[in-house]
Design a protein around this nucleic acid. Structure first.
Length: 494
RNA sequence: GGGCCGGUAGCUCAGUCGGUAGAGCAUCUGACUUUUAAUCAGAUGGUCGUGGGUUCGAUCCCCCCCCGGCUCACCA
């Protein structure tokens, strides 16, 4: 037969022969009684003798991951949603006809087994099949059993295949799910209301970033995919929900890297009558307790080093951190000109007209951020780069804001919200000027948001936590693509 | 977008100082009723990422392009 050399062709031919022989290769009437993990759990303490006496019979289903044939018998590794389990197939147990059918099953096929538990000579808990059924014929061969699938491009493009063959990948996304659910519970227990706000926005506000543009045909208008939910969530606080949160996607039309995906998940939350100090305490408690539940300890490994999340965490002002890590006298930072020449000694290429605040942020990014391995809150951000934050009462040059850094990365950003509508409008105007001067990412004017503030936003603090990065931290993942099921890639060609 | 690295069988990889390619696993045939990457014997399987150039001859050398990884820039 011409197709005999072609793996896909061989399996297609089997499909046809099954149908001709009255075997449905895509049956859907098989019910399982247990997962393989449940069976393993129930019989963990039973030895071979105890199992001989049991009358238990189980129905399990899963994908054949390996088969070891011995003529009239065989061992299979069956994988279901809970793990892998060994199945023993013997001709004198399932009958000649079934065994003939079984002989043509391929690795990758999904089958159903009814059988009884026993222990093999090597004491491995297994199921001795009484009946065996094909549930789904698999037409494509799986990657090799030993080396598995390592090609990262295939792993991301065909994540289903990655998940079939790489148990540690399955585990990462289970942990991701668990982390999100723990965060949600943490917030709900503290009386935060979970809400959903627009993904498509006429003004992309709440952050400084380039948005994606889309178009609504009937409304004949361009819309932006949101870069942040911030302004909508604060409108809800104006509306009287004192505590709100949203766990959802943001979209930013910027570079892709080991830490950046165009769409990424943020948890943003707002709390009336709180300050950014309250949020530092809350963040410490949230992240450390989740780490403890997910990783079993406050001290977790990341990239070959330990991170200690035991509260309390270091708290430094932006300037203090530069002095500490940049080996520079505090006075140098007080003056824009001297700070600029210091920055240039660091090799930073900066425009002469750069503002003092933006300059300090540049210096921080260069000399401090990569060194903040252990969790650290940085406070007293320049007002100039914080258009939505409340000015500090003692020093209007800085705002009541913090960012959280762990393993040299920003993980959270929070501040006491600016709720003075006059100040807010002025800051928007200032951003418009920067936009006019060429800053593509300067914040747009949002008249309705200012109007909401004019009705009165209570004193409020708000925060955003990067969920992907948190998951990276708690799963010891080097790339954001390893914690996003379907990371953005160019289309497959050919 | 720049720099560096990579793309060879279904998978994991080797290789050709230029003469159209190999291994292991998978697959197929045969043996085998307690294996654990089962074993043993045999067999099949490739437009060497795409297009062009140089050459008697290119998977190999040169150029363009596509895809991916890392990195720099930008950002969270």
């Amino acid at each position: 037969m011409e197709e005999q050399n072609d793996l896909l062709g061989q399996r297609r031919a089997k499909l046809d022969s099954y149908r001709e022989g009255g075997v449905n290769p895509f049956a859907n009437d098989f019910k399982t009684s247990h997962t393989t993990a449940q069976i393993a759990e129930m019989h963990i303490d039973d030895d071979a003798e105890a199992l001989q006496e049991t009358e238990a019979e189980y129905a399990i289903a899963g994908r054949i991951m390996a088969r070891r044939d011995f003529g009239k018998a065989a061992f299979l590794q069956l994988q279901d949603g809970s793990g892998r389990f060994q199945v023993y197939i013997a001709k004198n147990q399932i009958g000649e006809d079934s065994f003939e059918l079984f002989r043509r099953f391929d690795i990758g096929d999904i089958i159903g087994i009814r059988g009884v538990p026993f222990r093999t000579k090597t004491d491995e808990l297994s199921l001795r099949a009484k009946t065996i059924r094909l549930l789904t014929k698999s037409l494509l061969p799986l990657p090799e059993k030993w080396h598995g699938l390592t090609d990262v491009e295939t792993r991301y493009r065909q994540r289903y295949l990655d998940l079939i063959v790489n148990p540690d990948v399955r585990e990462v996304f289970r942990k991701r799910s668990r982390i999100v659910s723990l965060i949600r519970n943490f917030m709900l227990e503290r009386d935060y209301l979970e809400v959903e706000t627009p993904m498509m926005q006429p003004v992309a506000g709440g952050a400084t970033a380039k948005p994606f543009v889309t178009h609504h045909n009937t409304l004949k208008m361009d819309l932006f995919l949101r870069i942040a939910p911030e302004l909508y969530l604060k409108r809800l606080v104006v509306g009287g929900y004192d505590r709100v949160f949203e766990i959802n996607r943001n979209f930013r039309n910027e570079g892709i890297s080991i830490q950046h995906n165009p769409e990424f998940t943020m948890m943003e939350f707002y709390q009336a009558y709180a300050t950014y100090h309250d949020l530092m305490d809350l963040t410490e408690e949230m992240i450390s307790s989740i780490a403890k539940q997910v990783c079993g300890s406050f001290v977790i490994p990341y990239g070959g080093k330990d991170v200690d999340l035991t509260p309390p965490w270091d708290r430094l002002t932006l300037k203090e951190s530069i002095v500490k890590y940049g080996q520079v006298e505090p006075e140098v930072l007080e003056d824009r000109t001297s700070a600029l020449s210091y920055a240039r000694t660091l090799g930073l290429e900066l425009d002469d007209r750069i503002g003092h605040g933006k300059l300090l942020a540049e210096i921080f990014d260069e000399v401090v951020e990569p060194k903040l391995w252990q969790p650290t809150f940085i406070t007293e951000y320049p007002t100039e780069i914080s258009p939505l934050s409340r000015k500090n009462d003692e020093n209007p040059e800085v705002v009541d804001r913090f960012e959280l850094f762990i393993v040299g990365r920003e993980l959270a950003n929070a501040f006491s919200e600016l709720n003075d509508p006059v100040d807010q409008r002025e800051r928007f105007v200032k951003q418009l000027e920067e936009k006019a001067a060429g800053d593509e990412e300067a914040h747009a004017m949002d008249d309705d948001y200012v109007r909401a503030l004019e009705y009165g936003l209570p004193p409020t603090a708000g925060e955003g936590i990067g969920i992907d990065r948190l998951v990276m931290l708690l799963t010891d993942s080097a790339s954001i693509r390893d914690v996003i099921l379907f990371p953005q890639l160019r289309p497959e060609v050919g």
